[in-house]
Simulated scan of single mutants.
Amino acid sequence: MTHVIRSIRADEWPAVKALRLAALQDPVAPIAFLEAYEEAAARPDSYWRERAAGAAEGTTERQQFVAEGPDGEWAGSLTVLVEKAGTHDPFGGAVEESQGHVVGVFVRDGQRGNGLIGALLDAALGWSWGLGLERVRLFVHERNSRAEAAYRKAGFVPTGATAAVPGNPEEREIEFEVRRR
Results as ranks from 00 to 15, higher is better:
V82E: 02
W13E: 02
D11F: 06
A32Y: 00
R6T: 13
L81A: 10
A55W: 09
V105Q: 04
G100Q: 03
Q99M: 12
G104M: 09
A56K: 02
W74G: 04
K84C: 09
G54E: 10
L19Q: 00
T59M: 12
Y47A: 15
G58Y: 03
A41C: 04
Q63G: 03
T87K: 01
S46L: 14
V107R: 05
I8L: 14
W48P: 02
E96C: 08
Q63M: 14
A40I: 05
E35F: 07
P90N: 08
A40R: 04
W48N: 05
V80H: 00
I31E: 01
V82A: 04
E96M: 10
A32H: 01
L78V: 05
A94D: 15
G93I: 03
E96N: 11
S98E: 07
V95G: 03
E39T: 15
K17W: 08
F91A: 13
Q64Y: 05
Q63T: 10
P30L: 02
A55P: 00
R49G: 01
V95E: 05
A10P: 02
Q25F: 03
L24Q: 02
E38M: 10
V95D: 03
E73H: 11
A56H: 04
V103A: 08
A32F: 01
D45N: 11
Q99T: 05
F33Q: 03
V103F: 00
L21Q: 09
A52E: 08
V66L: 12
P27T: 04
Q25G: 08
V107S: 07
V80P: 00
T60Y: 12
V103T: 12
A15L: 11
R43L: 15
A94L: 12
V28Q: 13
Y37V: 06
L34I: 11
I8N: 11
R20T: 12
S77W: 10
Y47M: 12
K84D: 13
D71L: 09
R49L: 07
P90K: 01
V102N: 00
E96Y: 07
V107F: 07
R49T: 05
V82H: 02
S77I: 05
A29L: 09
A41Y: 01
G104I: 01
R51K: 14
T60N: 14
V28Y: 09
A22H: 04
I31P: 00
A53Y: 04
A56L: 06
D71W: 08
E83M: 09
A29G: 10
A55H: 12
T59D: 15
R43G: 10
R9K: 12
G92L: 09
D89I: 06
L24A: 05
A22F: 01
G58Q: 07
D11N: 13
A22V: 06
